[in-house]
Design a protein around this nucleic acid. Structure first.
Lengths: 316, 316
DNA sequence: CTGAAAGCGCTAACAC
DNA sequence: GTGTTAGCGCTTTCAG
């Protein structure tokens, strides 16, 4: 490919003039501008973006850290980010980590090596201290709350939402309530769920908490375990509508009616939940993603809380 | 941030030696290697990726062109791509186009400006001629079949799958069969569906084909129109399980039983279809995405057909 | 095994 | 208005 020097030579001008017309700078005579443009068109020239970014010290590209690449919840967040990034003419890189702290750090390092202007963390597998040291290389925004002034946050008050959901179940008269989580207690989301549970129900019998639930199948299996117990729960709060759907299937298989024999409430208002008319708490992850992107732009490191919504359908 | 020259000075060696240790080249004395490494660690130095890529003429980054960023089918494709890209230590950029040809061209231009080594086109809004001219700048692989030797293809035999689905319905005794598509006849997928329909049923009454269906709501509305007709269809082939789910809801609302009064078959084997036990034709889009990535690597421009599967559940 | 030097392709301060 | 030139930060011949 031709470079800017070739263009300059052919157009009979200097490289700066070429650069000026490429970047629409003023103070270029119309005649030269035309001349240069003609040569550019003739040679079908496109400026090398790497060279431009190298010198400009900016890539107009941000990364989105996600743990899995097959999880609806993270898709929703990503969609939110994409909604906004196209409007702002930014590119976005998807960075799956599988919750591997080392991999996550390598992603953050893309700020340091100048590949990325910012990164949005929809999940986190390192402690904040390790992460903070990267904030001097670019904008970091998290999809969870944190006090650190170097970090922007687009977050949901998960604790409140969990409390609400459990309260709802309690108000309906349930006392044997189980719940599932995606990960173990290394996850802050899991911790908050447990805390909220205890807040509402006091004790948490360990057998009422199952983790490592991600898919419909996981939900089915979890429900199997739960519903075969002697004092089986009368309500389950699932960590996602797909998981909830699996539970619903299982209950149906066992000839239990929902919500009479078993109440189910899911999360994230996903299609399968709508289809099965499952109640859900919608954390509005698309909005979270949109807000997260906006925060990478305005560099204020604001903390923005996104409201959640409980949607009551026929499973409670 | 320090650069390679700083490191060289502090370590008392030349920049080439520093470069050699960074890139694990042989022929560096252990003593110098250690010295350099110590300085690198001390200064917490990371090579600037833009500079490296600029000179190496390679970014280890590919782009995935998708039309919408809120469509499950394209999520599946993207997931497939990500599955493989992490294994190969490649980054991936998501490039939503909204089917805008100009935007699509700007994405392809990222090959020319050296930002991307390759791009996977899960959708296409330009004619092949416009696209082919970019293939000299990087690998282009399409998720549809094309003869062009410059293009790798990971594709499904959509025509065959449509024929199969319609045949299935015909075999079940349906003669009034309707179908929906995501777009109008500008889409090759729509064209193929129509062609397959005519192949099986001969005539296509225009009122049996509804387009612009994307979501569950779209499916609901489409079903409303279809089911309120005088000679209402006894079967509908939906262009996606979410759309099919909307139709299912509508049928239920009208007190029609599925499949007795209305057979429904969807596409892509999505959670909501599993939840509602809808029959579906699974085009295995995750595999398509995986294969597409593999094709960007091996540069053979092979044409790889991915088998589809029809999954019969209770809606047919 | 090591270093000097010539780039990669572009931008922008500076001088005219 | 326009051109000269010094970088941006790194890799890679080519000598030695």
């Amino acid at each position: 490919m031709a470079n800017i020097i070739d263009i300059a030579k052919l157009a009979g001008v200097s490289v700066s003039t070429v650069s000026r017309v490429i970047n629409n700078h003023p103070y270029v005579s119309e005649s030269k501008r035309e001349m240069v443009q003609r040569v550019i068109d003739e040679l079908d020239f496109t400026p090398n973006r790497l060279a431009v970014d190298l010198i400009r010290k900016e890539t107009k590209c941000i990364g989105v850290i996600i743990p899995y690449n097959n999880n609806q919840a993270f898709d929703q967040l990503l969609h939110g980010v994409l909604n906004r990034s196209v409007e702002h003419d930014y590119s976005v890189m998807v960075l799956p980590t599988k919750y591997d702290p080392a991999k996550e750090l390598r992603c953050l390092n893309m700020l340091k090596n100048k590949q990325l202007d910012g990164v949005i963390m929809t999940s986190r597998s390192n402690d904040w201290n390790s992460i903070l040291s990267y904030s001097k290389y670019g904008t970091i925004v998290a999809c969870e709350f944190t006090d650190h002034p170097q970090i922007g946050c687009a977050y949901i008050d998960r604790y409140a939402s969990f409390v609400d959901a459990f309260q709802l179940l309690k108000d309906k008269g349930h006392s044997r309530v189980a719940f599932t989580t995606a990960r173990g207690e290394e996850s802050s989301s899991t911790q908050l769920t447990i805390k909220a549970y205890k807040q509402i129900f006091g004790e948490l019998s360990p057998m009422y908490h199952l983790n490592d639930c991600q898919t419909m199948d996981d939900g089915f299996i979890a429900a199997q375990r739960l519903l075969n117990m002697d004092s089986r729960p009368t309500a389950i709060y699932a960590n996602g509508d797909e998981v909830a759907a699996g539970m619903y299937q299982c209950a149906k298989n066992m000839n239990l009616s929902v919500p009479e024999d078993l109440a189910i409430i899911g999360q994230e208002n996903q299609p399968v939940g709508i289809g099965l008319s499952l109640s859900t708490v919608d954390h509005q992850l698309v909005k979270v993603g949109e807000q997260a992107f906006d925060l990478t732009m305005d560099r204020t490191n604001n903390k923005v809380k996104i409201p959640y919504q409980i949607i009551i359908r026929q499973s409670t």
